[in-house]
């Protein structure tokens, strides 16, 4: 193990979003990066049927010691990274506590019930206030719009990884990220992902 240490062990991270947002890839990248640093990682994921327009959630347990359950116990998330804002709120309902932190994308993806007019999507102001009231610290970034500048909304997931790195809650560094990208995505795709990582980091004050 290197010099990296955890602020809490196990550190419980939830990455949430909607099927198709690249949630699973973000969790794999983070998992690989932290695994490279010698931490013991367990990731639990819901996908399969849930990827069809449903909520998708990855639970990540990061520990210097043993393997933990792929499901985080209720009320024990330390950080929630949300690719879609109402998904942050949904996760807080089950896994939140007064000390939890959140980084949320501000770009909404309407549930089909909202599209059909059966339910209402809250205003972003209201949603931000609600999330702030349920967290110790919350960051809101428009990762999707920034990703569109890079040519594809899918880069929103890597921007969230960059943003997470910048908050400093976990030992995530740019070099480690680059190493994982080179290994898993290859040389051709690494530069644009590094750019997305940097853009995400810049959005955190």
């Amino acid at each position: 193990m290197g010099t990296a240490t955890l602020t809490k062990d196990p550190y419980n991270l939830i990455i949430t979003g909607v099927g198709g947002q690249g949630n699973v890839l973000a969790s794999r990248v983070l998992g690989n990066l932290l695994s490279d640093k010698g931490f013991s990682i367990t990731i639990g994921e819901t996908f399969g049927a849930s990827q069809r327009g449903g909520s998708v959630m990855s639970h990540m347990r990061i520990s210097a010691g043993e393997s933990w359950s792929p499901q985080i116990p209720k009320g024990q998330a330390d950080m929630v990274v949300a690719l879609e804002p109402i998904e942050a709120l949904r996760v807080l309902h089950t896994y939140g506590h007064p000390g939890v932190k959140v980084i949320s994308n501000t770009r909404s993806i309407y549930p089909v019930g909202v599209i059909s007019g059966d339910s209402k999507y809250p205003s972003m102001d209201e949603l931000q206030k609600t999330i702030e009231g349920l967290t110790e610290q919350a960051w809101f970034i428009n990762a999707t719009d920034a990703a569109m500048e890079l040519g594809n909304p899918i880069f929103g997931n890597i921007m969230m990884v960059g943003a997470l790195a910048k908050t400093g809650v976990l030992p995530i560094d740019r070099d480690g990220f680059e190493k994982v990208m080179l290994r898993t995505m290859g040389e051709k795709k690494t530069p644009v992902n590094l750019k997305a990582f940097d853009m995400g980091a810049e959005m955190i004050n």
């Binding site: 049927a49 449903g54 709120l89 949904r90 807080l92 007064p98 089909v112 339910s119 209402k120």
Partner: peptide, 20 residues
């Protein structure tokens, strides 16, 4: 916390049904 979060989620996190 749980009560507060449950209320907020009920009003502000509309259900995301499966769809094509």
């Amino acid at each position: 916390y749980q009560t507060k979060a449950a209320q907020q989620a009920f009003f502000n996190a509309p259900v995301r049904d499966l769809t094509f």
